[in-house]
């Protein structure tokens, strides 16, 4: 990355930060709704995933990184998701057979 000509421009970061704060307040307010356990968990985790995506993409500068970085991060997330899926599908069906 050529750094010399870059000027200090906090605007983009402040917009991302505002979105993060908005989502935080939204998820707190939504958690007050009586929509059952599964619904509340799905909403809370979805909002968290969007927030994490914003931090990864903008604050951690994945938007400026070459494709290989994005592929690496995607692979790490897929690995983690596979571990979750395998473990939880195992536990969900224990005691049935």
């Amino acid at each position: 990355m050529n750094t010399k000509e870059q000027s200090f421009s906090p605007r983009g970061s402040i917009i991302v930060f505002s979105a993060l704060i908005f989502l935080t307040i939204a998820t707190v307010l939504l958690s007050g709704l009586d929509i059952g356990n599964a619904g509340a968990l799905i909403i809370a985790m979805s909002v968290a995933a969007v927030k994490a995506g914003l931090v990864l993409y903008f604050f951690m500068h994945l938007n400026h990184e070459p494709l290989i970085f994005k592929l690496f991060v995607a692979l790490a997330i897929i690995t983690l998701a596979t571990l979750f899926l395998l473990t939880f599908s195992d536990y969900a069906f224990r005691g049935i057979a």
């Binding site: 998820t27 707190v28 958690s31 356990n37 509340a40 968990l41 809370a44 985790m45 909002v47 968290a48 927030k51 994490a52 931090v55 990864l56 604050f59 951690m60």
Partner: peptide, 21 residues
């Protein structure tokens, strides 16, 4: 900075699991 942001990402998931649901 990358390290600090990752610590933030982890908190983003800890927060709803302990305080919201």
């Amino acid at each position: 900075g990358l390290y600090w942001h990752l610590v933030d990402v982890i908190w983003i998931f800890l927060f709803p699991l302990y305080y919201l649901v």
